[in-house]
């Protein structure tokens, strides 16, 4: 079957129920997308499908058709994605980094839909887990991007 990943067509030969995450990591060797739980619980595997955050470990490839899939490898080709990565560096968000591909994808998706998210919006949408507890830094970076410092950022 054909998949469109980061603007490139890939031909892959897998069962239709194979999770997208397996295809990315094992077949295409795009290991930027991480495997945390495999059960839609952590968000480490988040990618964008037509601009929306999706957990690739629970996304069967069989039905993706011509959907545009974006992974962390190409996120800086996206205008918002590029700004997110820059803010992540500015705020030194990552600790161990394992969850951060997913966090960046989730933040990009949020800002695409809600350019000026409130604290509540951020709390509602940024539900990926981080073992290192970078939640405050994530929140500050997103506020920064929203062009609105917000309450949590202001306290700093």
């Amino acid at each position: 079957m054909e998949l469109t990943i980061n603007g490139v067509q890939h031909h892959i030969d897998v069962e239709p129920d194979t999770p997208l995450l397996w295809v990315l990591r094992d077949d295409l060797k795009m290991t930027g997308t991480k495997y945390g739980c495999g059960l839609a619980q952590c968000g480490a595997c988040t990618v964008l499908i037509n601009g929306n955050a999706a957990r690739s470990c629970v996304t069967p490839v069989g039905e993706l058709g011509s959907a545009a899939i974006t992974t962390i490898e190409a996120i800086e080709q996206d205008e918002i994605g590029q700004r997110v990565v820059a803010a992540w560096i500015r705020h030194q968000v990552p600790q161990c980094g394992y969850c951060q591909s997913g966090q960046v994808m989730a933040a990009t998706s949020l800002l695409k839909q809600t350019p000026h998210p409130t604290d509540d919006d951020i709390r509602a949408v940024m539900v990926n887990l981080c073992r290192c507890g970078t939640y405050n830094a994530i929140s500050a970076a997103i506020h920064d991007l929203a062009g609105d410092v917000g309450q949590e950022g202001a306290k700093k």
Partner: peptide, 21 residues
């Protein structure tokens, strides 16, 4: 939507835990 789900009991949990699948 992010703004809407906060006032409805269960809606936020649905989005955070159930909606991905």
């Amino acid at each position: 939507q992010p703004a809407g789900r906060q006032g409805i009991p269960g809606a936020q949990t649905y989005m955070a835990k159930c909606s991905f699948c």
